[in-house]
């Protein structure tokens, strides 16, 4: 069967659109870390952060380490390819602001024993933009 040549660019565009639109059905977290047990009566909240410097599994795990031991933080979930982190916390103990500051704080490098500054920058928190990436 004869096919017009414009079928090829049309298929290219359709498949590109399919790939771009279909990505939402394949979302998987890069890192999920349970940091603390939440009290049974706690009214937990989630803060959604877009973090500059969080771009792969390693950087996501390191960002999770920033919240390790922070009172009130229950779970850290990162989506590295979207530079996105979701932090479940107890608002009676922690605030979104303390979580943001903890992530942006100095990072201890176990290999060198030094503190690294400015590794992470929260550029958006719960839909509010903070600064340019």
């Amino acid at each position: 069967m004869r096919v017009p040549p414009w079928t090829v660019p049309l298929l290219v565009l359709l498949c590109a659109a399919l790939g771009l639109a279909g990505a939402r059905f394949l979302v998987r977290p890069s890192v999920v870390l349970d940091l603390a047990q939440a009290p049974s009566d706690a009214d937990l909240r989630t803060t959604v952060l877009v973090v500059g410097g969080l771009f792969c599994v390693d950087t996501a795990e390191r960002a999770a380490g920033q919240l390790d031991g922070l009172p009130g933080v229950v779970r850290f979930t990162a989506y590295a390819s979207r530079n996105r982190a979701e932090v479940l916390y107890d608002p009676a103990v922690a605030t979104a602001e303390t979580i943001r500051k903890a992530i942006e704080g100095p990072v201890y490098d176990k290999e060198t024993g030094e503190f690294l500054f400015g590794l992470y920058r929260v550029v958006e928190a719960d839909g509010v933009k903070y600064s340019a990436p």
């Binding site: 498949c15 399919l18 279909g22 990505a23 590295a80």
Partner: peptide, 29 residues
């Protein structure tokens, strides 16, 4: 059940779409 390094769902979705495109229009990509 995790992505590798910086790769994510968009890479996977585009690869699957690319396979479909290739089955239809060879290496048009």
């Amino acid at each position: 059940q995790k992505f590798t390094c910086a790769a994510g769902e968009l890479n996977l979705a585009l690869f699957l779409a690319l396979i479909l495109l290739t089955l239809l229009a060879r290496k048009a990509f």
